[in-house]
């Protein structure tokens, strides 16, 4: 199902059935309940669902979850609208798309970078619809307005500049020019042709008091050298059921550059909270036990991430 029209906007959507890509393609999960639904939300401007399509989606579906990916409005192959690029609209888009796909129950959300802002806002707006959050290098959590968007907007500006520079450089390579040229065209259309930058500048951060109301379990993964890592620390301190994993040697691009380690953390967490399996290839002596009861909020003692800590306590922060 490559296209879905939701809220009057045409969205590019890709799905992978549970156990797609698993050896034999046969269900291996104990019990006969419906497969959990895991929805992937990508980052800004030059990002799109392909970031997940080639990295996390297939291993997650092979573990027994139904994977849903979509391009945010104005991104990838989804329709570009003049307005409606804020996090609240994006969260409404997300649930409208899921409704069109027939998913009306709770889902697990995986957000990367700005996708984490969307996922967080979705979980706060509709706690009945979000069973768990995996936040990868997520922007959003901050103590004060203004400070949190600065890095994101600066990063966006740097991206636009880099695209402009590389577009000129790649004119020497006609074939390479096409990719950069298209990415630059997408960035130009979004940054100069829509309300995106205004919408982002107007966004409020997700403050500790709001984070404390999150009732679903949260796995936060940040790079050791990321300029967003403080958001991870704030999540760990503020969210009752948060687990923080810091990836050594990585920065903001860990989804692409640290996919394997990310999966080693994600798949046991999903197994614990969504009832998926842990493929043998990623199971390690440090991994959480597969198929642990979903009702339990505590990860297995041997889980490879820091345990949840009480709010406002820095203990356990890595």
């Amino acid at each position: 199902m490559p296209e879905v029209t939701a809220r009057g906007v045409r969205f590019h959507v890709q799905t992978m059935d549970a156990w797609e890509g698993s050896p034999g393609g046969a269900p291996r999960r104990a019990g006969a309940g419906p497969a959990p639904v895991v929805v992937f939300v990508h980052g800004l401007v030059t990002d799109n669902l392909s970031s997940f399509y080639y990295s996390l989606a297939r291993p997650v579906s092979a573990a027994g979850a139904h994977a849903v990916m979509y391009d945010l409005r104005g991104h990838g192959r989804s329709e570009c609208t003049a307005t409606g690029h804020g996090a609240a609209d994006a969260a409404r888009d997300l649930f409208a798309i899921l409704g069109e796909l027939g998913h009306h129950g709770p889902v697990h959300l995986v957000g990367n970078s700005y996708g984490g802002v969307v996922a967080l806002n979705a979980a706060l707006a509709r706690p009945d619809r979000v069973a768990g959050l995996i936040l990868i290098e997520a922007y959003g959590p901050a103590e004060h307005a203004g400070e949190w968007t600065e890095g994101m907007l600066n990063s966006l500006g740097r991206t636009a500049l880099a695209l402009e520079y590389e577009r000129q450089a790649d004119q020497l390579l006609a074939m390479g020019w096409r990719q950069r040229g298209r990415q630059a065209a997408t960035a130009d259309a979004l940054i100069n042709g829509t309300s995106l930058m205004e919408d982002l500048a107007a966004l409020d951060p997700v403050r500790p008091a709001d984070l404390a109301t999150l009732s679903c379990p949260v796995l936060a993964v940040y790079g050791e050298h990321s300029d967003v890592v403080d958001a991870g620390t704030l999540l760990l301190r503020s969210v009752p059921g948060c687990t923080l994993h810091i990836m050594a040697g990585h920065a903001h691009t860990l989804l692409r550059e640290g996919t394997e380690e990310l999966l080693e953390v994600m798949l046991p967490w999903l197994s614990h909270h969504a009832g998926t399996t842990v493929p043998a290839a990623t199971r390690s002596p440090h991994a959480a036990r597969p198929a642990a009861p979903a009702a339990s909020a505590e990860p297995a003692p041997s889980a490879p991430f820091a345990p949840p800590v009480p709010p406002a306590s820095p203990a356990g922060v890595r």
């Binding site: 799109n48 669902l49 970031s51 399509y53 990838g76 074939m175 020019w177 298209r182 990415q183």
Partner: peptide
């Protein structure tokens, strides 16, 4: 990549 300069999102569309 080299000859067609396909973007990754276009490869997804082709796969579909």
């Amino acid at each position: 990549n080299g000859d067609l300069a396909l973007e990754s999102i276009e490869f997804v569309a082709l796969a579909e």
